[in-house]
Computed example of a mutant assay.
Amino acid sequence: MKDRTAEYFAGPARQRACLLPRGFSATVRLDLGRPGRTAHWYLTLNEGDIFCEASSREADCVISADGDVFDRLVAGGDPTTATLRNEITYSGPPITMIYFERLLPGPPGSHGPARVTDGDGEERGR
């Protein structure tokens, strides 16, 4: 059986690495519960690049979840909702988790953030 999470971070996620802030680097370990085992993926995030390998080394941030939950996230599920439901947990600097979430895809069919305008047509927010 293929590991959708590993495939995502070895391929499509690399295209999203440009969303990491300039000068940001961190390591993230994913501990994913799979039938009969725990899969460990070690991600090195550097400005503009991601490297993924199977490893249980220490990392700046450790994210734990059921493998099926994380497969759902790499298919466009909402990581904030999963965290609030306690489907995923993490330890480490919260900013690392926030930047890590930028690497995950949006919902299927999304095309980036929508611009919000006020009543005069002026853009607000980000």
Rank of each mutant, 00 (worst) to 15 (best):
A75H: 10
R72H: 15
H111Q: 12
T27M: 04
R34N: 12
E7V: 13
L84K: 07
G77C: 06
T44Q: 07
S56I: 04
D49C: 07
R57G: 05
N46V: 10
L19G: 03
N86K: 14
N46F: 00
F24C: 11
D68Q: 14
S110V: 11
V116A: 07
K2I: 12
F100G: 05
G33H: 02
A54I: 08
T44P: 00
D118V: 09
R4K: 13
P105L: 14
M1V: 11
S56N: 08
P35H: 11
W41F: 13
G125W: 04
I95G: 03
G76K: 07
D66G: 01
P79W: 01
S25T: 08
R102I: 03
R14F: 01
F24K: 14
G48M: 02
N86Q: 11
P93H: 04
A65D: 03
D49E: 09
R115W: 06
Y90H: 10
T44N: 05
S56H: 09
F70W: 12
I88E: 00
E123Y: 03
T44S: 13
L19H: 10
E122K: 15
P107M: 12
A13T: 08
G67C: 11
R85C: 09
L104T: 03
I63S: 00
D31V: 12
T38L: 07
F100S: 08
G106M: 11
I95R: 07
G11N: 15
D66L: 04
K2Y: 10
R126D: 09
T89G: 13
I95K: 04
I50W: 00
I63M: 00
S64C: 10
Y99G: 05
A10R: 14
R14Q: 13
A82Q: 05
P35F: 09
L104E: 02
M97N: 08
E122I: 15
T81M: 06
I95T: 06
A17T: 02
L45D: 01
R16S: 08
G92F: 02
G121H: 01
R102F: 04
F100L: 12
T27A: 09
R16D: 03
L32E: 04
E123A: 10
V62Y: 00
S25D: 14
G33P: 02
L20S: 05
T89D: 06
R29L: 10
E122T: 15
T44V: 10
Y99F: 12
M1F: 06
Y42A: 12
R72W: 05
Y42P: 06
F9E: 01
A59G: 06
A13M: 13
W41G: 07
S56Y: 01
A10C: 08
R14S: 06
L45K: 01
I50K: 01
P94V: 03
R34G: 09
P79M: 09
I63G: 02
R102W: 07
A82M: 12
R115T: 15
R85S: 07
M97Y: 06
E122H: 14
